[in-house]
Write a protein that binds this DNA or RNA. Structure first.
Lengths: 169, 169
DNA sequence: AATTAATGCGTGACAAGTCATATAATTTCT
DNA sequence: AGAAATTATATGACTTGTCACGCATTAATT
């Protein structure tokens, strides 16, 4: 038998090209690359994880916050912080207290050691943002963010909403 | 003691607002939402995973492919396919053969049952793309993809490359 | 005051992605 | 031909993200 599994290189290349405009696929791979870049940079900035960096940054910028506050500034699920914070506390970078006004809340505060860790990573991550700022003008960033808002609006629509959408001509 | 952990709501809100223009953070949460939307849709389209859907789609579009081919069309690491494919084979949706021309390669082919699974999910995922097409004009998609190309170009730069970049005035 | 509802957080289970390393097959180089 | 380098795939270990559920605390309702 003549190896009927004919692998058609032209069609494969065409497929690769076509998928370049698939926004969903592009988002996935770009995000993955972005995450890896951040991890590599943080490796040189004290060896902290992305979640840890975001937390130190937030706490440095705004002062004490609850876990829910952190999850909303970071646009992520609270469970991620719920797991990361005890490690940060054990490393001595943050302290955690039950809030007196509302016993359900946990107030997270940066320690002196946490500030040191922030100062170690901050120049590197700042350099990253600065370099990005060279690649895009402020106007472009605004326009890009506009597109991100629109696609976010789309991907947050519930599945049923999309399926019930009327066909257009 | 007067609960010195003052949680400043204004600063928290300011931080949330400011992070709206943080492209890295936006990409992360948008990608996560996109993935969840796809998972929800696929749940209604036969209960396959995202990796499985992409694979069935690729194989349907281009015919037999190797694992590397699949990872390049999907812009993802081959290890992901290496793990997903045996499951697809066990479900009877694809077949796998060692290539005769190059014994290192594995040729993956859609089975009849795999085509059925594709046809079950395809209308739902097609509807998703169609609905996205209503939210963006073709020109906008092109412009958006241009921004994605640029940020991809940036996030794929090695960490050292970014750190050695000269400061600009 | 007592129930009920809502909120904040912890945790288990899972998906999707990465890398590093190992092994087998093929190519290239001397 | 034999050795060395490259390539394709498999696999273990890890991170980031989700959801669902449970428990404790607070707020709202009757």
């Amino acid at each position: 038998m003549t190896d009927e599994q004919e692998r058609n290189v032209d069609r494969i290349n065409a497929r690769v090209d076509r998928e370049e405009t698939n926004l969903f696929a592009r988002l996935a791979s770009i995000y993955a690359a972005s995450r890896k870049q951040a991890q590599d940079l943080l490796q040189k900035g004290g060896g902290i994880s992305i979640v840890e960096w975001r937390t130190l940054w937030d706490l440095h910028e705004v002062g004490p916050m609850t876990i829910s506050d952190l999850s909303s500034t970071q646009r992520t699920d609270h469970s991620q912080l719920s797991r990361a914070l005890p490690k940060l506390r054990d490393k001595g970078l943050v302290s955690m207290h039950q809030a007196t006004q509302d016993g359900r809340q946990t107030i997270v505060t940066l320690t002196a050691k946490g500030s040191d860790a922030y100062r170690l990573a901050a120049p590197i991550m700042g350099k990253r943002r600065a370099t990005l700022g060279e690649a895009f003008t402020q106007t472009e960033i605004t326009e890009f963010v506009g597109y991100l808002d629109r696609i976010e609006n789309f991907v947050r629509r519930p599945a049923n909403d999309i399926l019930q959408e009327e066909e257009i001509e």
